[in-house]
Design a binder for these strands. Structure first.
Lengths: 148, 148
DNA sequence: CCTGACATTCAAGTTAACTTTAAGGTCAAG
DNA sequence: CTTGACCTTAAAGTTAACTTGAATGTCAGG
């Protein structure tokens, strides 16, 4: 299988597949006489697995550390450990998101539920003062992504 | 107030404050005769607000579009709209994280609960086949962050 | 008057995960 | 024998949000 077909079958681009090879995520593959890469059927599975792991929140570096040379021989303990840590990471992030959401809803409420006897400027000051009194959180990259 | 003191009081670095000015997030500030920036007390509030908004998931671009020239005169509708959209974004991300977590836990279980009459390689094939049959998710940047 | 802690600018570097560009080889079909 | 769809490489560009570096200026204290 040439790289174009592998790209088609895995849903990745050829440049991405070559990139993965360059950074050592994919081991160097056989070449035909003309220099073209020639992939075994298993490559589709490997690429699918990489995409899957990425979707679950693993970086390419992490994936490289976990992906075995042979798809049938995994380092169970390292793998289960990494999966377990990722679950914990997700839980941490979920807790943050829950707090962020509650904060945002509170601000929306404070803006919309302003009593008639308080003018906008005063209400703005009030909200600002309360907001800046609480401890701040660090940015969460994924919330700024155009698409997720 | 010079930039060093503002940095100290806001918890940001001077370079970051200058950077915010350069990209138009902070309007150009008064200068002393020697060229040093001279900030009003309000600047601490503005920077605190920017950091807060970042923590809630807003990009600097988004923040620039929402921050008013005068902290007491906000564009209520645009602001409430943006806050509401951000809440929706958070909910979308939370749903994804919940699915990811469930997937990870299922994989952990399939690895650990392998029946004694099935060998590792067979179990690996079984898990892989099931995994790659499901529809994949796109990467979530925040799960790969070193710190969050 | 000198030293050290500040301040200034502009340009370039950082990170991750790719894509794009440029310049060129291969090959089947018409 | 030419066209177009592939393939190759290496290097540079992309994005966001900063930081770092280089070269230089300012100023208060001893």
């Amino acid at each position: 299988m040439k790289i174009g077909e592998l790209a088609h079958r895995s849903g990745l681009t050829p440049s991405r597949i070559r990139f993965y090879e360059r950074i050592g995520l994919l081991k160097a593959v056989d070449r035909k006489a003309n220099g073209y890469r020639s992939y075994p059927a298993e490559a589709v599975t490997i690429l699918g697995l990489i995409a899957l792991a990425q979707g679950a929140g693993f970086s390419l570096d992490e994936i490289r550390g976990l992906l075995p040379a042979d798809l049938e021989h995994w380092e169970h303990d390292a793998l289960v450990g990494a999966l377990t840590r990722k679950v914990a990471d997700i839980e941490t992030l979920q807790a943050r998101l829950t707090r962020s959401k509650a904060h945002l809803l509170q601000v929306i409420d404070e803006i919309e539920a302003r009593p008639d006897d308080i003018d906008c400027a005063t209400n703005a000051r009030r909200v600002l003062t309360r907001l800046l009194g609480e401890d701040a959180e660090m940015p969460v990259a994924s919330l700024r992504a155009k698409q997720f």
